[in-house]
């Protein structure tokens, strides 16, 4: 049984103005558990769509999507939400923190879906913040943080429920080089130390090079899967 990500014959079409747009076309893709994947491809090639399907935010027209052993298409509504809360963490390009909540409250948010006590939730959230080196910013609102810090808070929020899979959509897209490096290092650490399966969409070849494998997507079809040289990945570490 594959505990990673398994897509079989996935097709997704959007209709826009009466016109059918086949964004993903009969896609087969297997990603192993505990690996760090980068997903590359030109703009509009369906990267985000793919990520949304894996995260259960959207459903394919046909084909099957299995994540960590779970067939997503067998889930609906509340069950899908609950699965999402448990099993995947999302990191977005635009951070998507809730501006009226402090960093700690943002991180603690997903824990509201767990039976943990208030104290435990706080402890977990603080631990996650410490993990991203922002324990000292717990009380700050997103507006008081830099972009890199915001994205790290978002990562802390994504891992606070300890999901197996991290889905990141251009997490460094809005960041400068230095902040991006920090975020990428963090993702590498989460993959290496905590054995998270990471799937990261990116435009940036340098960012992709920090992953273990690069999946190329082109017009809704799988291009190639490229193995990143170990020393290249290691060498890129700061």
């Amino acid at each position: 049984m594959n505990e990673g990500i398994l897509l079989q014959g996935v097709t997704k079409t959007y209709s826009r103005g009466g016109e059918e747009l086949r964004v993903l076309d009969n896609l087969d893709l297997t990603m192993d558990e505990g690996r760090f994947y980068a997903l590359m491809g030109p703009s509009g090639s369906g990267k985000t769509t793919l990520l949304n399907l894996v995260g259960g935010l959207d459903l394919p027209d046909s084909g099957s999507v299995q994540v960590a052993g779970q067939d997503i298409r067998s889930l609906r509504g509340a069950a899908l939400s609950a699965w999402r809360a448990r099993s995947v963490g999302f990191v977005f390009q635009g951070f998507n923190l809730i501006p009226v909540l402090s960093a700690l409250e943002n991180v603690a948010l997903p824990l509201a879906l767990t039976p943990l006590s208030r104290k435990e939730r706080r402890r977990h959230a603080l631990a996650a913040l410490d993990l991203v080196d922002l324990g000292d910013r717990a009380g700050h609102r997103p507006g008081q943080l830099s972009g890199g810090q915001e994205q790290r808070v978002a990562i802390a929020r994504a891992i606070v429920t300890d999901p197996k899979v991290l889905l990141c959509d251009e997490p460094t897209g809005d960041l400068d080089r230095a902040a991006a490096d920090q975020v990428l290092a963090l993702l590498q650490r989460l993959n290496g130390e905590m054995k998270k399966t990471v799937l990261m969409v990116t435009h940036d070849a340098a960012a992709a090079a920090r992953a273990q494998r690069i999946v190329h997507l082109d017009k809704g079809r799988l291009g190639s899967i490229e193995e990143v040289q170990a020393e290249q990945a290691a060498g890129a570490k700061p």
Binding site: G55, L57, A78, S81, A82, W83, R84, A85, R86, F90, N96, L97, I98, L109, P110, A112, L113, R157
Partner: peptide
């Protein structure tokens, strides 16, 4: 809207 999206993505009903 955006926050609603985030909450839903996080798994809130």
């Amino acid at each position: 809207r955006r926050e609603v999206g985030v909450l839903k993505a996080l798994g809130f009903s």
